[in-house]
Computed example of a mutant assay.
Amino acid sequence: MITAYLFKDKTFEIQPLTPADSLPEHTLWLDIHKPDEQEQQWMSRLFEEEAPELDELDDIEASARFYRDKDGLHIHSLFPQRLGKHIDGINVLFTLRNELLISFREDDLGLMRLLRHYMRQERLEVEDAADLLLEIFQLKVEYISDLIEDGYKTLEGTAKEVLQVDDLHKTMSDLMMQEDGNGHIRLALYDTRRALRFLRRSLRQSASDEQRKWIDEMLYDIESLLPHTQFLFDKINFQLEAAMGFTSLEQSKVIKIFSVAAVVFLPPTLIASIYGMNFEILPELGFDYGYPMSLVLMLMSACGTYFFFKRKGWL
């Protein structure tokens, strides 16, 4: 799907395009979402060099994620997105050239929908394509901040679940999901910091003072958010260790019961084993009350062992 965002008289107009259309005049932003073969061919006409492919979005090398060529500046940026309780990372390729911003992505992104909402309400104050790209990164940093805040609230709930020991399996599953999501958040922060530093170097001659200040403020925000992600990692690990400790404690209680039961029944088992021997000479075999006596002896030995454990505080 190809969508053109026309910017004229300080307002945006959203216009879907087909492969039969040409690039409209006053297009400031061209968003390409999961193009088919025809749309891919249409997009290739926009680039002097090789047009990007969907399988290139997940490249992790710095040389493949941030570079400049005849088509302009190319930035691969990782965006975290919450899907229910799970947080995933979505890569978007931005190409910035003169007065046109091109975004290329494979998956739907809630941040893009929010940006369109702001456009319809005329809440974006941009002058050119660079401003629009910085606005996207600003929304990204704010969204990451909200995800970190949600992480704190989630961990407050899991802390109570760990103490209650009702469903440790669910609690540990939630903690593992939180740890994975926090990893995506931290990776997105590092990726955004690299992208902004690349932008600052690349636009050092053409960027305005306001844009440079904007980039510096976002970099400062990222530096202030990174310690929070480390704190979340520490808190998640602490709760995981606490949950595993409670699990081990519950298992120890069960093992303790079996151990005590085995020791309590050990003396009666010994007595029964002695009188179960097949020797001809066993003095007690001739007693009239030998059988009741052995039962009483076994019962007394079991009770004696139990009360001994109880007195020691082992039960």
Rank of each mutant, 00 (worst) to 15 (best):
M1D: 13
F12Y: 02
P16M: 00
D21G: 08
S22T: 15
E25F: 10
L30N: 04
L30T: 05
I32M: 07
P35C: 06
M43R: 10
S44N: 08
E49G: 07
A51P: 03
E56F: 10
L57A: 10
A62K: 15
S63G: 05
F66A: 00
H76I: 12
Q81E: 12
R82G: 02
I87C: 06
L101M: 08
S103Q: 00
R105T: 09
D108G: 12
M112F: 14
R113P: 01
Y118K: 15
Y118P: 02
V126M: 02
L139P: 00
G151T: 11
G151H: 11
T154M: 11
K160N: 09
D167N: 15
M176F: 15
G183Y: 13
A188R: 05
R193A: 12
R194K: 15
L199C: 09
S206L: 12
A207D: 03
K213C: 02
I215P: 04
L225F: 04
F233A: 09
K235C: 03
L240A: 05
S248K: 08
Q251H: 08
I255G: 01
F265K: 01
L266T: 12
P268R: 01
A272L: 07
G276Q: 06
E284N: 03
E284H: 01
L285M: 07
S301Y: 02
G313Y: 04
